[in-house]
Amino acid sequence: MTQFLIRRIFWAIFLFLVATIITYLIFWVIPADPAALAAGKSATPADVARVRHYLHLDEPIWRQYLRFLWNLVGHQQLGNSFVTRQSVNHIIGQDAPVTASLVFGGAIFWLSLSIPVGILSALRPRSILDRVSMSFVLVGISAHPVWIGLILSYLVGYRLHITPIVGYCNFFPGGIGVQCSGPVQWAYHLLLPWITFMILFAALYVRLVRANVMETMSEDYVRTARAKGASESRVMIQHVLRNSLLPVVTILGMDLGLALGGAIFTESIFNLPGLGHEVINAYNTADLPTITGIVVFATVCVIVFNFIVDVTYGFLDPRIRPS
């Protein structure tokens, strides 16, 4: 177990290094002239040269990268925005809770729908429930998440006045210039984004859970358990579900990156001030440090989450460890 843990830690560190190198190369080496971007549109060549020196862009690439890495690891600093001159750490600190509320809340929604539906569909293949849920799956993976969000906010928010159409409220009460806050308002405003997320991912997960449960039910050890006289509920809970739902947990870890992508769409439809919203704004203003910061932050989140899932999984299932 210790060996497994050490190997996963080294792999996580390696992934982090690779991800930061790729990020650094994309943002600071490929662009025609990051200094010109930083200096703004009306800068003179002298200004650009000064900015280039200030950002250390006149140094060799490897030294730039090491400086970037040192700032990141040693000082946990991601730099300052070209546009607002705010620290990127501060920007991410403001936006991350919004995205986290969206993604984790959405995950609870989609898991609590897809696990029971997937299991029931697998138990009764070709039943009415199975057919309905499989049709729902097809529509869910074929409809565009943006479109689902727009239609939901039009029908539920605008036509039926059940939920707010756009906007976000902080979970914790208080704050300066905050219009609404508190857990109730927070959940009320996030209800539609969560449902959008749920439709998108529940479709994938229902299919996954259904396939996993069906596959596990045809395993030899399930037949053995039945043969030795275990009750049907014991077979299901102890043998089938335990083995078929564990892989779902791993895939949940991998889908975090996908969910961060989905968050960009959901945030832009429902105007939630999260990381996705921020990254689109930064894209429109060519604000390189903010985009780099968010990419690095998101990658680190995915790596850490994958690491936790891997270790938990290895702890729960001894077969995983040696590989």
Binding site: G261, V279, V295, A298, T299, V302
Partner: peptide, 17 residues
């Protein structure tokens, strides 16, 4: 590595540079 890297953010990165 490709799976860890958030694809959409990568796309934004390439588009901007």
């Amino acid at each position: 590595v490709v799976m860890v890297f958030p694809a959409l953010l990568f796309i934004i990165a390439v588009r901007v540079v």
